[in-house]
Write a protein that binds this DNA or RNA. Structure first.
Lengths: 209, 209
DNA sequence: GGAAAATTAGAACGGTCGTGCTAATATCAG
DNA sequence: CTGATATTAGCACGACCGTTCTAATTTTCC
């Protein structure tokens, strides 16, 4: 049963593993540089220096490749961020670690993040609706809202709408990739420090000023 | 000299004005609904119930049409927002009006804003670089940074990095279109009130808590 | 070293893109 | 009403899209 059309069943060969990794990396670079719409199979294959058909040989199609790009990047990000947040003891410190860890990961994985955002904003199903769009970031925001809720219950945070605060935090974090790519003068450390301070004030109880 | 290829020279006829307005509106609707990449000339013409060539008859090409979509929306937005900000006397009130006016306009022009963001994020020149991207929002942020600077000089605001604060404010405002389009339960008034309160705290002087 | 399998290049397919051209129709001035 | 002009539909064009197919080449294994 092996032979025909693509590697299946048997364990991946050395060449297969190397090609898959190469193609995923080339897809990331191409999407980040040219944008999702311009990242055609021909472009990605050209960057890898191979023929188009190699892509459909190792992946069932372009969608498969895109999917694997996303899962790889998300796995990397989660592995970096989760332990750094979990290490902190108070909710306020966890929120600070949340912001800092995100910005550290983003600033050291700029092309990956640019690719993720291009895909999230543009990849659509055949019926025209966004494949990962609209509600795909909801679980992320929901988790963040949970953290904010615990901070309010414990009295560490003041009164505010948690969903609006979560949106503001996420959007401020996700602003970094385009910022850094269009302006190399942007300093990720400064950005992290200022954002931590900004939302530290924003989550405080109203102290009659 | 009249005749050949498109209306030029003479003043626009009734039909011309109507068609241009219709096509701009259809472009907005199509881009907002299907995304920029899927908003082909054929799609836009189909929505208008006319032939593709009518578009290239009234506009020099697709780029021209897109450009007019942007200028129309930006003009509308500026006419709504500018006087509301200018009416306030203190910097803090002006910042509040800035946020509120933006959210009011956005929530009442959702499809327009969705179209603008699709275009800004995706429209590229032939060499592959974003046409309105990267640095196109710089003047907007710069103006906002100026407002923040005046607030710090007058002592109304505390100490913070103005460019980071400007990014956070803009990103929080620009989050509204996708929020409202994916979740009809989102309340623009609540969002405006909470955002005003959030950045009111964030711009305050550190009051030792 | 030779057969079988894995991997690759390259061409071909049907489809959509934006634009240009042509011929038919609608509008309007005289 | 009529001729000129504005407007429109429809097709053709070259380009690129993602996928499929075939044939050639490389690798693997006995």
């Amino acid at each position: 049963m092996p032979t025909k059309s693509g590697p299946e069943g048997r364990k991946a060969s050395f060449i297969e593993e190397a090609r898959r990794a190469q193609l995923i990396q080339c897809a990331i670079d191409t999407i980040a540089e040219l944008g999702f719409a311009q990242a055609s199979v021909a472009q990605i294959a050209g960057r890898a220096g191979i023929s188009k058909s190699v892509i459909t040989y190792y992946f069932s199609g372009k969608d498969e490749l895109i999917r694997q790009v996303l899962t790889q990047i998300f796995t990397d990000a989660h592995r970096y961020i989760a332990p750094r947040v979990g290490a902190e003891q108070t909710v306020r410190l966890r929120l600070q670690a949340y912001i800092r860890a995100h910005i550290e990961f983003i600033s050291t994985h700029l092309t990956q993040m640019a690719a993720v955002m291009e895909i999230a904003a543009n990849h659509r199903t055949e019926d025209g609706s966004l494949r990962w769009g609209g509600t795909a970031d909801r679980p992320v925001r929901t988790a963040l809202e949970g953290m904010l809720a615990r901070g309010q219950e414990s009295g560490e945070f003041g009164a505010f709408d948690r969903s609006v605060m979560a949106v503001a935090i996420r959007r401020a974090i996700d602003a970094l990739p385009p910022l850094m790519m269009s302006d190399p003068a942007v300093d990720a450390e400064v950005y992290a420090r200022e954002l931590v301070a900004l939302f530290d004030r924003a989550t405080r109880k109203e102290s009659n000023g």
